[in-house]
């Protein structure tokens, strides 16, 4: 394995819940609760989980788009949670993000040239001529045409808009891109185009991705390693083939068995989970999954399981593997 580009240690993000007459703090939502992982240079780390599990908050906290409550995020051996705003802004040149909704993440009043060119301007490319050239280059890289530069976002289809978002993220030759559900708003036939584009770009520019999604087959397709989140915690992390063939955590097992497969011959044994995901403002004690877990034991409701390596590079947080 190559060297880690990003190290996340005990990352936490709690949101305060305010209430009462004086708007005092009455509780906390533990959106991300003690998450630890590393990302190696050139790899794609997938993060999956259901809505509300904290995967998007994790992505944003890594870039400090949401200020983490506690923990350490080391990018190239530098703890970025300690940086001041100015240093952080400079650093964002190397860390970019692609958002889920290509409709909402592009300013409708700006031309594509302005959208893609703005990060260049912010990071010091003052010459308009140079910027124009670079924008055209970028558009070709993501499979659009140079003449698209003068158009507005509404003139593009969803897939094309996502390409614009990718071009914007690539503008300053970043090292790490956080992709927050980049294909979930797209149709299947367009989704595969974007996934292929993203893996081509990774090879071409030696990028590192953190790929956040809820679709398990998409994550499997694109990632090298996959982490599974539940209620703000990482419950399992392993190489993707290992994780999909030999899932250890009962939640991962249930999640994988719940995915409908487009093949009438593959009707596997389905683990149907009872109930809903508990509220993160009042998470269960002990293991967060014990309320729905088919294999829950007495200890699960009392002691939080530790997230540790069970076998080679396969991390899991479950008392079954103590």
């Amino acid at each position: 394995m190559s060297n880690p580009i990003l190290e996340v240690n005990n990352l936490k993000k709690y949101f305060d819940v305010k209430g009462g007459v004086f708007g005092r703090k009455v509780g906390e939502v533990k959106a991300v609760d003690d998450v630890t992982f590393t990302v190696n240079e050139g790899e794609i780390l997938g993060i999956v989980g259901e809505s509300g599990c904290g995967k998007s908050t994790t992505g944003k906290a890594l870039l400090r788009l949401i200020e983490p409550t506690d923990g350490e995020v080391k990018f190239e051996d530098q703890d970025i949670t300690q940086l001041d705003d100015e240093a952080m802004r400079k650093l964002r040149k190397d860390m970019q993000i692609i958002f889920q909704d290509p409709y909402a993440s592009l300013n409708p009043r700006h031309t594509v040239e302005k959208i893609v060119g703005e990060p260049l301007l912010v990071h010091g490319m003052k010459s308009a001529e140079e910027r124009k050239k670079r924008v055209k280059e970028l558009l070709e890289v993501v499979g659009l045409r140079p003449f698209h530069a003068s158009r507005y976002p509404h003139q593009f289809s969803g897939g094309q808009r996502q390409r614009i978002g990718i071009a914007r993220a690539l503008a300053n030759n970043p090292k790490l891109i956080i992709c927050d559900e980049p294909v979930s708003a797209l149709d299947v036939s367009v989704q595969s185009q974007i996934l292929n584009l993203m893996s081509d770009l990774r090879d071409e520019f030696n990028l590192t991705y953190i790929f956040i999604a809820h679709d398990l087959s998409v994550v499997k397709h694109i990632s090298d390693r996959v982490g599974v989140m539940y209620l703000g915690k990482l419950v399992e992390l392993a190489d993707k083939d290992e994780l999909y063939e030999n899932p250890k955590h009962p939640y991962t097992q249930a999640l994988l068995s719940a995915v409908p497969v487009a093949d009438p011959d593959v009707i596997g044994d389905r683990v149907i989970l009872e109930g809903d995901v508990p509220s993160p403002s009042n998470p269960p004690t002990g293991c967060p999954f014990h309320t729905r877990c088919p294999a829950a034991m007495d200890i699960c409701s009392e002691v939080k399981p530790e997230f540790k390596e069970d076998s080679d590079q396969h991390y899991v947080a479950c008392h079954l593997y103590d």
């Binding site: 036939s189 367009v190 595969s192 185009q193 292929n196 087959s217 998409v218 397709h221 994988l256 497969v261």
Partner: peptide, 24 residues
Amino acid sequence: KGLIRSLPKIHEKEQKLYSIPGTV
């Protein structure tokens, strides 16, 4: 045919996804 081929399969390993060119 194209639609089915462009789905990422959870039980198979493949490097490159098929994609239908163009948009709806």
